[in-house]
Computed example of a mutant assay.
Amino acid sequence: MTFELRGVSVRHTAAAAGPAALQDLTLSIAQGEQLALIGPSGAGKTTLLHTLACAHRPDAGQFTLFGDAPWAAGDVRRRALRARLFLAPQTPPLPPRQRVVTAVLAGRLPHWSLWQALASLVKPADPESAYAALARFNLQDKLYARVDRLSGGERQRCSMARLLVSRAEAFLVDEPLSALDPALAVQALGVLQEEASARKATLVCSLHQVDLARAHFPRIVGVRAGRIVFDAAREAVTDEMIATLYRHSDRGAPAESVPEAPATPSLITRCF
Rank of each mutant, 00 (worst) to 15 (best):
L245Y: 08
Q62N: 02
A103D: 08
A106L: 05
P265D: 05
V104F: 01
V221D: 02
F66E: 04
A14W: 15
R99S: 05
G107M: 07
R214I: 00
A170H: 10
R167L: 06
Q62S: 11
W71G: 03
A236M: 15
S120P: 09
P95G: 12
A43I: 01
A72Q: 15
A83C: 08
L139S: 03
L22Y: 07
R224M: 04
T64W: 07
A16E: 15
C271G: 10
A135L: 01
A21L: 02
G190H: 02
I268C: 10
A183Y: 11
A132T: 00
A83V: 13
Q187G: 06
R199T: 14
D148I: 05
L85T: 00
L267N: 03
G74W: 15
A125E: 12
R82N: 03
L177S: 02
A135E: 03
A119M: 07
L192Q: 02
V229G: 01
R247C: 06
Q90F: 10
P93H: 04
H216P: 00
I268S: 02
V122P: 04
Q23N: 06
L114N: 02
L65Q: 10
P40L: 11
S197L: 12
L94Q: 11
G252T: 00
S41W: 06
L109D: 07
V173R: 00
E235R: 05
I220E: 12
P218C: 14
L184P: 00
L35T: 07
D250F: 08
F217L: 00
H111C: 04
R149C: 05
L267W: 04
H208I: 03
G74F: 15
A185N: 01
E260H: 10
K142M: 15
Q156N: 09
L22P: 09
C271V: 11
A232C: 07
V104D: 02
L134M: 05
P262A: 11
A201G: 02
R82K: 15
I38H: 08
M241Q: 07
V76D: 14
S249W: 13
E169L: 09
R97Y: 11
R167Y: 03
A117V: 08
R234A: 15
Q193L: 13
A55K: 03
R162D: 06
P218K: 12
G39Y: 14
E33A: 09
L164R: 12
A30L: 09
P58V: 06
I228M: 07
T238V: 00
E169N: 08
V165W: 10
S28V: 13
